[in-house]
Design a protein around this nucleic acid. Structure first.
Length: 170
DNA sequence: GTAAGGATTGGC
DNA sequence: CCAATCCTTACT
């Protein structure tokens, strides 16, 4: 079982996203208990020019972490009710991130963060050194399919990009 | 300062 | 189909 370090995330989001499919998301709770889930669905958000990416608004307090080096956690609240879990990819000044949309047993970005007790205190967490959340590679031979990203009807032509990756083998 | 709307979900 | 619910951004 290998823990993914920052170098894994310091690449283009369109390279990292498909490789993350089938990887293991590990979460250690305050009571010390560790739970592991296979990542089943991911979406890629790529740069300021991607109108669906929050960084298209520029570097703000909210998007700051996306401009940092890859391997960080980006969490934000949507619709006043759900926290979305993202991992920053690429290098400094290249705002890219992957949204974790589904893990084994919890299909849906809002559901999985609710179950894993992920909230905005995870904003900026370093996946390589965190004791609360990290990603592991168990050499699972993952296969995946792609599709359009969900819920971004305002993004014009960017809505058509096949930047959603779904695990197809189990 | 004020207003509009969102990378969602579950219930009617 | 629509409300829940609050943070971020845009605009007066």
């Amino acid at each position: 079982m290998k823990k993914l370090d920052a170098n894994f995330f310091r690449r283009d989001v369109l390279v990292v996203a498909p490789e993350l499919i089938g990887k293991i998301l590990a979460r250690r709770y305050e009571n010390g208990k560790v739970e592991r889930y296979r990542i089943t669905e991911i979406e890629a958000y790529r740069g300021e020019e991607d109108l669906a990416c929050h960084a298209s608004k520029g570097r703000t307090t909210r998007t700051e972490v996306m401009y940092q080096d890859g391997g960080k956690v980006y969490v934000y609240l949507i619709y006043g009710m759900y926290h979305m879990l993202n991992f920053v990819t690429s290098v400094e000044l290249e705002p890219q991130a992957v949204l974790i949309r589904g893990i084994d047993g919890f299909d849906g970005p809002g559901k999985l963060t609710k179950h894993l007790l992920i909230d905005k205190t995870f904003y900026g967490e370093d996946l390589a050194s965190s004791e609360r959340i990290w990603v592991e590679d168990d050499n699972f031979p993952a296969k995946f399919t792609t599709g359009k990203r969900i819920g971004i009807g305002y993004a014009g032509e960017w809505e058509e990009k096949p930047w959603r990756f779904i695990l197809s083998s189990k």
